[in-house]
Design a protein around this nucleic acid. Sequence first.
DNA 1: GTCTATATGCGGATAGAC
DNA 2: GTCTATCCGCATATAGAC
Lengths: 195, 195
Amino acid sequence: MARKTGSHSEITGPRVRAAALRLFARHGFAAVSMRQIAAEVGVQAGALYLYTPDKETLLFELLHEHMVDLISAWDAIEAGGGPEERLERFVRFHIRHNLARLDAVFLSYMELRSLGPGNFRTIEGLRRDYENRLEAILQEGTALGVFSVPEGRITAFALIAMLTGVTTWFREGGRLSRDRVGDLYWAMVRRAVSA
Amino acid sequence: MARKTGSHSEITGPRVRAAALRLFARHGFAAVSMRQIAAEVGVQAGALYLYTPDKETLLFELLHEHMVDLISAWDAIEAGGGPEERLERFVRFHIRHNLARLDAVFLSYMELRSLGPGNFRTIEGLRRDYENRLEAILQEGTALGVFSVPEGRITAFALIAMLTGVTTWFREGGRLSRDRVGDLYWAMVRRAVSA
DNA sequence: GTCTATATGCGGATAGAC
DNA sequence: GTCTATCCGCATATAGAC
């Protein structure tokens, strides 16, 4: 199947999203121009509109993809085991998954406000879905008497905030390995919720 | 001492900072124009430059004031008692203080990147000063055998992230009072670090 | 699919009148 | 101390050539 010269749809689309993700996370959504994104990809600004109807939609798609990716990755891992086992798996998963996606994590926390109301609600709903999965583990463990968690929802918020915080200080090649960080955080989480 | 008509320096300055804080936190530094800030205060855009040399300096001063305020408020409270007592005081102080300054907390996390290198380092240094105070409590408690904290610095990061997270979900007049939230978080923190 | 060119409007910051 | 008017540049988004 012959293709026209200069036809790079399958390759330029992902490159646009990658550049936008990097730049939005680094400088903020409003501070980044379509021209900057285009320059990073190596095309002219007008060409970006072949891949997104406008700037906000580009942001929305990045956030949406990140949340769907997070939830489906967890759903593929959670199955089986008691609450304590699943909670440990959650702690290690959340740290590992987010450390591998620093830009997307930062963007998800900072630029929800740059979305219109409809897009905002969609992303917020996905975040809630994720939080609910952790809350369910905590509730189940409390019902079984292995955890002592009087407020499952608030505890889920607290734990996710603590775990996500790793992304703000962890440095590749630093003194602590990812696994060691997982050990440390799991030790804290376990003690914080144990009966 | 007579004063000219339309002379409101002592009152307009604080109003400019208050409007900037609110708008920067709500919409992001880059997304807010000097004209918007001026409109909120009720003056014309040009008049703002009587109170700040430029937009970035305005942001810097807001962040700087917030950090100095935080540290000096804590220093006025910390004195006296053992590590466990001081840690409890820290937990309750951090939650209470930050809940009363939601815009500034949000801004401090999101818009450090909008500062130039020099201003950035200044704010980062102040944040480090604050973290060090918590770390010192954890180290002292570990040395005395009342805490079991193998990594004081990482644990300080983890606890601050967890506590600051309250600002993202707490709603005034909701089911939980501030004091109850303090109780819940202190229970988690205590168990997470106890020997 | 990408380019160049452009419409149209808002951005930060300054000058000078009052 | 504040206002009006303005400089100048960059923003998003689109039109039409190739």
